[in-house]
Design a protein around this nucleic acid. Structure first.
Lengths: 195, 195, 195, 195
DNA sequence: GATGAATGAGAATTCATTCAT
DNA sequence: GATGAATGAATTCTCATTCAT
């Protein structure tokens, strides 16, 4: 029987995985520990997921999918690429500030996972890159950024900066205010990219 | 008996580790495989290193130490913070273009290592952050950047962008020219940071 | 609630088990696969059988019971022990040629089953041994075989030869004609046993 | 590192496997139980064998190889095919009477093993079939058996009878004398096959 | 100093069986 | 009677590290 990939327990298991990984770290997140946290039997996990990797990939996929959907919706409400860029930074940070466990899992722990999981994560991340690229492209269209803007270079700067900032925030035990970084980073980007 | 941490075999083991990890990946880089590549017995590794983690940490430390020394020397030859920033990007990229195995190991593979190794890597990276910070501070001093520049924010942007660019380059099988990215990235940084 | 051991679904499950074991092999014949093949729910199997072993034992029992009944009836129609011996070989082979799935299941697959099942199979086989013994005993009575014939020895030869011939036939993908073996084997037996 | 497949511990593990399987049965012969019986660590087994299946296949191969070598040597000392046939039965029985644990393992327990192991066992058994065939062929050459003897049919009878006799002996807890069966079975074969 | 054979702890996964609906 | 989602026990194999030679 194939994995169900939906339902109440499907979500319970994913959320249990986030909690367990955040608390114990990737290498101490055994299937049985996740099962116990989700209040299901070990075997039940295999009714909803192919294997342990599938749990982790699904976790990232579900959370990142929701994030991207939210992001797209939020960005659509914002008229100018300028403000879209700010909103992108803001919402990215907000998401992780609101769910610090998720932040730890996606920023730190899942990066230690095995090659298969990391490959899938990379694939999922591309969707986010597309969102960033869209913002950049409309910025070019509207004349905010120069026509000669190399989108990949700019996207690497944007994602790299945001990602490194979050990592730095977590590594510093979330002691500095991530939200306070939105404006300065936005200003850096704008000045750097502007025509 | 404490680990020797020096000598011909010490280096042979570290370089073997780089080759093995680059070829087989972090998860397939067993001690015995590294030993075979270094043409020593498994047990010999424990005469020069405390344990496997110590090999990985030492690897990163040696390579990063040499990199930072080179970087400091190069930067010292460059007068203006403006050009130091360019040199920093250029040398960082050059190092990894020249030794793609090392690039794979430090950019991709070692990031999957266990918490202890990653903690040490973080500690070593701080030395590099200091170098970046120095460039930024002298830029502020010389009036190139504003007095209100948040050094950490700026450093996160610089390191994050460089790091993400390299990762993106490796993930694309080194197909695009990393060196061609130096100028556009330098321009982005300057424009973003300039007073 | 005790197992029903009778009814339409009882037979459906047994026949599904034969098909599944023949197709996938003993080790890949899970209860859920048999249930699906029989078009019943997993749990339904436990309304008709005590447990999985009981399915396998019942399978062997039903099929072997029918075989022995047929055999006894056929032998009763044959006057001489000489010809009974031929008929025994012929019918044994015919049964398995007619139902090769059953042949695979009883000759190959069920022999890998666990101790409990094999013990029961041995018990059921004894009924067949009795049939063989009857033929031998009437042969002795009628003076066809010597009075000093060791019945167990002779029966081991007869059953062992027939069984090994069938196994060899299946292992050779039923490529040679099993029915063509009836006469030569019958001749071997007769010459070997004859007074 | 590939499995060593030789040495003191190699043999210790094989012999431990025979003892454990004979005592506890195939399904209760865990790797750790075999390791304990062999007085080595679990992991040591994997220095000498690829995996658990390899232990079982090697067991059969080693024991059967020695058996076949002994058999060939013994048969070579016997001039006539007539007496070779007796010696074949005698030595086959003697081997298993001398080592009843081995008898249980090869006759009963290993037949429950998984498809891979059974396939290999079949391959190894063919060597024994060749030995039997040789005896039959020299019998034909010397005019003891008819020129029209179907060697496969005869071999199936010989192996089938011997095998079934041993199985029957074990199933009866070795209560009857297997060696006493040599002469009657030899007589049956000779009479059955003789010209 | 150098070797490499031996160690043994630790975890994902399967599948017969149950029982609430 | 029938269902099928949920259960949870049970086992192979890897690999960092040691230590007798």
């Amino acid at each position: 029987m194939a994995a169900k990939r939906t339902g109440e327990k499907y979500e319970a298991i994913i959320n249990a995985a986030v909690r367990v990984i955040a608390q114990f770290g990737y290498h101490q997140a055994q299937v049985s520990k996740i099962a116990r946290e989700a209040k299901v039997a070990d075997g039940t996990i295999y009714l909803y997921f192919e294997n342990k990797d599938d749990v982790l990939i699904s976790l990232f996929n579900e959370k990142m999918g929701a994030f991207i959907t939210d992001m797209e919706q939020s960005l659509s409400k914002v008229p100018s690429p300028d403000q879209q860029l700010r909103e992108l930074i803001r919402l990215h940070f907000e998401y992780l500030v609101e769910d610090q466990q998720l932040a730890i899992v996606t920023q730190i722990e899942l990066r230690q996972s095995n090659p298969d999981v990391r490959r899938e994560i990379g694939r999922i991340l591309k969707k986010y890159f597309n969102v960033i690229d869209q913002v950049l492209l409309s910025g070019v269209e509207e004349g905010l950024f120069g026509k000669d803007l190399n989108v990949r270079t700019a996207r690497n700067m944007i994602f790299g900066t945001i990602d490194e900032t979050v990592t730095s925030w977590i590594m510093n035990d979330c002691k500095f205010s991530l939200m306070d970084q939105v404006e300065p980073i936005h200003r850096l980007f704008l000045k750097g990219l502007q025509n």
